[in-house]
């Protein structure tokens, strides 16, 4: 029994280490590739290296690498949290996981209805990915969510899902839905259909990026102010960053912690709402009923 407990603990520690290792790798990569520069500047994601492709060179950027690191970390975090589940002796960890899963299932059930209740894992994973990506700023890494390409990819995925559920009643019904309420409004409906993923992507990316930009501008301003006020003091005191202590941290609490979590929640919420409202549930049920009636009729005639 004791040796089993020991091996269990070793696996536990290994999983925890593997959860934290990607972040460490990210910091290491960042430090190794960082061209040390004075001052504060706003740049996009740095390119680590490019792969030569036949059509166009494929740059591997910081945001791509960081999002993969987040994926790996979340994967091992899930393994760690679900390691050693038992019905007889539930641990604290297990209670936490059960609470989280129950919450996410309730959220999906509340917002999407009975038909979509299997969507809970998808919505929860999008939320977790987004939260972890946005919170990467806390350890000084480039957050993948402030890159339009990453968030655009997620929005595209959601758009495909929306269209798939709109197609459930057949292509004719899908095309007809553009002519509502009046036929000549079809172009506007097409525009609003395209605007859905665009606005989702821009909302998430813009929020995270604007937080970064404002933080950088405030930090740069404080740097200048410190130089102006204390710059004339002799020696070490003249170079000490008095005003830069603490004040940017207050902004970080709002822009990184609060805004990051809120945007993840909103992205997941909008995903649920768009998919659930786009799906013509009544028509689909009617269609299923007709289909079943037809099948029964065929069976009875046979």
């Amino acid at each position: 029994m004791k040796s089993k407990e020991r091996s269990f603990r070793i696996v536990d520690a290994l999983l925890l280490i593997l959860t934290l290792l990607p972040f460490l790798c990210g910091i290491l990569l960042y430090v190794l590739f960082e061209p040390s520069s004075e001052g504060i500047e706003i740049t996009g994601a740095r390119i680590y290296f490019t792969i030569n492709m036949p059509l166009q060179n494929l740059p591997i950027t910081e945001s791509q690498v960081n999002s993969w690191l987040v994926i790996v970390a979340v994967f091992f975090l899930c393994l760690y949290l679900t390691h050693g589940l038992s019905a007889e002796h539930p641990t604290r960890r297990q209670h936490f996981v059960e609470l989280a899963i129950e919450k996410s299932e309730n959220l999906v059930l509340e917002n999407m209805g009975e038909y979509f209740k299997d969507f809970a894992p998808f919505v929860a994973s999008i939320m977790l990915l987004s939260v972890c990506s946005s919170l990467l700023t806390l350890i000084g890494l480039y957050p993948p969510t402030s890159d339009l390409n990453v968030v655009g990819g997620w929005a595209l995925l959601v758009f495909i899902l929306i269209t798939y559920y709109k197609f459930k009643c057949g292509p004719v019904h899908y095309l007809k839905s553009f002519g509502e309420p009046v036929a000549f409004l079809a172009p506007l409906n097409v525009i609003s259909e395209v605007a859905t993923p665009v606005s989702m992507a821009f909302r998430h990316y813009g929020n995270v990026l604007s937080g970064t930009v404002i933080s950088v501008i405030v930090a740069a301003g404080l740097q200048g102010l410190t130089k102006l006020v204390f710059g004339n003091l002799p020696g070490f005191i003249g170079k000490f960053p008095f005003l830069q202590i603490g004040i940017p941290a207050v902004l970080s609490v709002y822009f990184d912690l609060f805004s990051g979590c809120l945007q993840a929640f909103i992205f997941a919420m909008l995903t649920m709402l768009y998919i659930a409202t786009g799906f013509p549930e009544d028509d689909y049920k009617e269609k299923l009923k007709k289909k079943n009636a037809k099948l029964k009729l065929q069976e009875s005639t046979n």
Binding site: F202, R203, G206, S210
Partner: peptide, 19 residues
């Protein structure tokens, strides 16, 4: 909070253009 986020979108479009 949901409504605020949706209302914020136009401002973010402007921010992206300014950026």
């Amino acid at each position: 909070l949901m409504g605020c986020a949706v209302a914020e979108t136009t401002g973010l479009y402007a921010f992206v253009i300014a950026f």
